[in-house]
């Protein structure tokens, strides 16, 4: 029996809530790879261990949706192409308290441009309760400036309901005919 594996990719700057968002909908306790660094790799100094987050939704014995959180560091953009193989779509989380969220939006949409063109992007803006500006109207204008028609929602990454809403928007954007 072959196993069907699909992925949803969570990306965004460090602290935007990727790990938390994955935890909000994953069936398993999310794995952060740096917690599992082997003794060998730990012994090599100086070095930095970079985490990739992973969660899982099991739909049946042979059907799984993997949830990947990209490392936040911008230097890892080369890796994201590979992470997106088999991906359903991309969830970009942006932290509204960051210095320049517009630059973050530009950076991540550019890094995943090919994937977004083939699949779908949805944007979740976190920490809007701490920083109300920029508002969603600005994000919509920025997306339009990038020729992207993606849903953008205010979210609390801890909220199962909010993260589920992002996934719903992703799936319905890919196929509005889906029913549940």
């Amino acid at each position: 029996m072959s196993i069907i594996n699909r992925k949803i990719i969570f990306t965004g700057p460090v602290g935007a809530g990727k790990t938390t968002a994955i935890a909000a909908i994953s069936d398993i306790k999310p794995i952060t790879t740096d917690e599992y660094a082997s003794d060998m790799t730990k012994s090599r100094k100086p070095q930095t261990t970079v985490a990739m987050d992973y969660g899982l939704i099991r739909l049946s014995e042979n059907e799984r949706v993997h949830l990947y959180g990209t490392p936040g560091q911008e230097r890892f953009d080369f890796m994201w192409d590979i992470l997106t193989k088999g991906g359903i779509g991309l969830i970009l989380l942006l932290d509204n308290t960051r210095k320049d969220p517009q630059q973050d939006l530009r950076f991540y949409t550019n890094a995943f441009r090919d994937f977004i063109e083939k699949k779908q992007l949805v944007v979740g803006v976190t920490r809007m309760d701490m920083q109300r500006k920029p508002g969603l109207a600005e994000y919509r204008q920025w997306l339009e400036g990038l020729s992207l028609q993606s849903p953008v929602f205010e979210i609390d990454a801890r909220s199962h309901k909010d993260v589920t809403m992002l996934v719903q928007a992703l799936l319905f954007s890919l196929d509005p005919g889906v029913t549940h």
Binding site: I4, R6, I25, I57, L59, S60, E63, V65, I88, T164, V167, Q168, L171, L174, D175, P176, G177, V178, T179, H180
Partner: peptide, 17 residues
């Protein structure tokens, strides 16, 4: 949209909701 993943999407939505 291609409808090839409709079944999987539907099951995923059911699970999440």
């Amino acid at each position: 949209p291609k409808e090839e993943s409709r079944g999987l999407f539907s099951r995923l939505l059911k699970r999440l909701l």
